[in-house]
Amino acid sequence: MKREPKAGVLALAMNLFLDLRNYQYSLSVVEGLRIHMEMGHSYIEIPKNSFNEMQKVVNASNEHVISIGARFSSEADSHLVCFQNEEGNYQTQANSKPGKTRTVTGASFVVFNGALKASSGFIAKSSIVEDGLMVQIPPETMESLRTALRDQTDFQIPCGRNDGGEVREIVTVRWVDLSSPVNTGITSGVDGRPLDGVRSVRVQQDTEFESDGRTISCTEVFYQLKAPDSNFSSVLSSCSVFQKEMALAACSALTPHLAVLASSGINSLTLRISTQADMVEYQAGCGGRLLPQRYMNELDSALIPVIHGGSASVPQTAMDMEFIFYITHTI
């Protein structure tokens, strides 16, 4: 993807997320966390049962930045969306539910940047960056925020100038009781099977697969565990290399066919890999229907070598892994 470099808050956001030494992009997602923005007030709501996940994010963050991915909030009547126009510029807009007045807007992530200097003239600043929220705070406020997150206590950040004037906005981090199921309304692209309550992880692919002006990438993997005593975190840890190799192999197999797939109306597809002791099966589909056999033949050639000779052993846990792939145009 070739375009001129962009300046401003977009560049600032990317600098916060990018690890230029290791060429990685990362944004940890805390299950159930949601961001609600209202007039004069923004709320970062963290489920109490996601305390351990939140601690991992805090402990893995660097001294000045804590960045957290959020889930889509069905309670918000609009949601921030970032898109790239034909000129290559990024734009942000709020998409509203039909017939709804926009009062609560959801966001996809929040970044706490603890490098705000006293000379800036602000006690804290909040702003929209792409489809997320950035909160700039002084170092001492960042330390207080870390303590609140570790102690599972609520925390308020008044935003405005430090001249004693009126507070323009308050950002509140609060712990809430949430019992709503994850991934509500999601169905499998293979056969339409409901995935309500099935936990998933977002994927940032570090290898680009491009052909005929289109790219394919794996963006999310659903884990449907079949044994009641299976631990989700342990499964993720043991499957990370296998997950990566299977996703890359599938992308490699389908890359030569991106133009044909897109012209057939297939812009997203699902690969389901079912595992248990001494058995691996897989299917691929789109919109609840299996892919034509010619694409399955291509997947056979790419996936079977990984299953039998990859650097990671096949998981022995009884589960279905559903890989979500998107085909997009390059600009």
Score class of each variant (00 low, 15 high):
141 T>V: 15
133 L>C: 05
129 V>Q: 04
110 V>N: 06
111 V>E: 06
120 S>F: 06
152 Q>A: 11
140 E>L: 08
138 P>T: 08
140 E>S: 14
118 A>F: 04
102 R>N: 13
147 T>I: 09
149 L>E: 01
142 M>R: 01
121 G>D: 06
101 T>G: 07
111 V>Y: 03
122 F>G: 07
104 V>G: 05
126 S>A: 10
141 T>H: 10
141 T>K: 14
151 D>R: 07
132 G>W: 00
139 P>S: 11
108 S>R: 07
101 T>H: 07
126 S>Q: 11
107 A>F: 07
120 S>W: 06
102 R>I: 14
103 T>Y: 08
129 V>W: 05
100 K>G: 09
120 S>V: 14
106 G>R: 01
124 A>G: 11
124 A>I: 02
122 F>C: 09
149 L>C: 07
123 I>H: 06
123 I>L: 10
146 R>Y: 02
134 M>P: 08
143 E>V: 14
113 N>S: 14
135 V>C: 09
117 K>W: 10
121 G>H: 13
111 V>A: 12
147 T>A: 15
151 D>V: 00
138 P>Q: 04
121 G>Y: 05
122 F>S: 08
125 K>N: 06
113 N>W: 12
98 P>Y: 11
103 T>K: 04
112 F>R: 01
119 S>N: 14
149 L>W: 00
107 A>E: 02
111 V>T: 12
129 V>C: 10
146 R>M: 05
138 P>R: 07
99 G>M: 02
127 S>K: 14
129 V>M: 12
94 A>V: 07
120 S>I: 09
110 V>Y: 02
122 F>M: 09
101 T>P: 03
150 R>G: 03
98 P>F: 10
127 S>E: 15
129 V>S: 00
148 A>V: 03
97 K>G: 11
114 G>F: 01
127 S>F: 03
112 F>S: 01
103 T>C: 09
148 A>C: 05
143 E>H: 14
105 T>Y: 02
146 R>Q: 03
105 T>P: 00
93 Q>K: 15
148 A>P: 04
137 I>C: 01
131 D>W: 00
117 K>P: 05
131 D>L: 02
143 E>F: 01
129 V>K: 02
112 F>Y: 15
107 A>R: 03
118 A>I: 08
130 E>N: 13
132 G>D: 02
99 G>D: 07
128 I>M: 04
